[in-house]
């Protein structure tokens, strides 16, 4: 793996990259999905958000990527105030994130290479760099020999690795995964988690994984935030949380990816 993921322009270590302050989310049916949650994630951390179905863990992740707006509380991610972010800035904000889903969400009519290159084209990486970046990303997930295959010809584990390569090819600051092993058997799930752990360890990418798989969580020995009925009932292995005021004082913004172009650092 020759890529230098997010070294230039990255925040200094120990900086808080995600901060949720007293965040609540109430759906229109009235039931609170998230209830007064406060948490912070530091740069380079690996965090599991776990809990039973309906505990609010996926809602929390959706709030972090600004797919949902909280009904109460403050959300700051990578220096962006998500309560006040302008619509036109959302794309720019999301270019700093890599997102992986349980159902992979691959483009079924395209091959492995095209699925990964798709992410590069969206942020308008110059054509001559796309091939190199895509092959590097596929190499990282050990799929470079299958780049011409249609994704429908791959196993579930391989498809999730393609999704991971797509999430990583744009070199995100934060990798967010929503039940990434939910559709996989135990061995394949473990392989995927090892891969995500390697990305965190080798490139310092901050990782937030939402899962209900207690087996994986206990084997990984990472920070675990457990939720129940929309509230955090356990936060183990965390570094001391920064306050929201401290976070504001940092005044950093992770904006090396331009809103309408790609400022690529090799």
């Amino acid at each position: 793996m020759s890529q230098n993921y997010r070294s230039a322009g990255s925040p200094d270590n120990d900086e808080t990259v995600i901060l949720l302050d007293n965040v609540s989310k109430q759906y229109t049916n009235g039931a609170p999905a998230v209830n007064h949650v406060t948490l912070s994630v530091r740069e380079g951390e690996f965090v599991f958000i776990t809990g039973e179905t309906g505990s609010g863990k996926s809602t929390l992740l959706k709030i972090m990527i600004h797919e949902l707006v909280p009904t109460e509380g403050t959300v700051r991610v990578l220096g962006y105030d998500l309560n006040r972010i302008r619509h036109g800035k959302i794309a720019k904000f999301r270019r700093n994130l890599g997102i992986v889903f349980q159902d992979f969400r691959l483009l079924k009519d395209r091959d492995v290479y095209e699925n990964v290159a798709f992410a590069q084209r969206i942020i308008q990486v110059p054509g001559n760099q796309i091939r190199r970046n895509v092959l590097n990303a596929l190499d990282m997930v050990s799929l470079s020999d299958k780049y011409k295959r249609k994704v429908t010809q791959l196993s579930g584990g391989e498809q999730q690795r393609v999704a991971l390569a797509r999430a990583l090819v744009n070199k995100p600051f934060i990798l967010l995964a929503d039940e990434p092993t939910g559709n996989l058997d135990a061995d394949t799930a473990w392989e995927i988690m090892q891969l995500i752990e390697r990305v965190n360890r080798e490139f310092g990418t901050t990782v937030v994984v939402v899962t209900h798989d207690r087996g994986i969580v206990s084997r990984m020995h990472k920070r675990v935030i457990e939720m129940k009925q929309g509230e955090i009932i356990r936060d183990e292995g965390s570094t001391p949380a920064e306050t929201y005021d401290d976070f504001e004082d940092d005044l950093f913004e992770y904006q090396d990816v331009d809103s309408d172009g790609y400022d690529y650092e090799d």
């Binding site: 990527i65 619509h87 036109g88 794309a91 720019k92 904000f93 999301r94 270019r95 700093n96 994130l97 997102i99 969400r105 483009l107 798709f118 992410a119 969206i122 942020i123 797509r166 744009n170 990816v257 809103s259 309408d260």
Partner: peptide, 16 residues
């Protein structure tokens, strides 16, 4: 729909 959904998460602009 799926493609547009993915684009949104990757950071595609409205114009794109």
């Amino acid at each position: 729909k799926d493609e547009i959904n993915i684009m949104k998460y990757i950071g595609a602009t409205d114009l794109y």
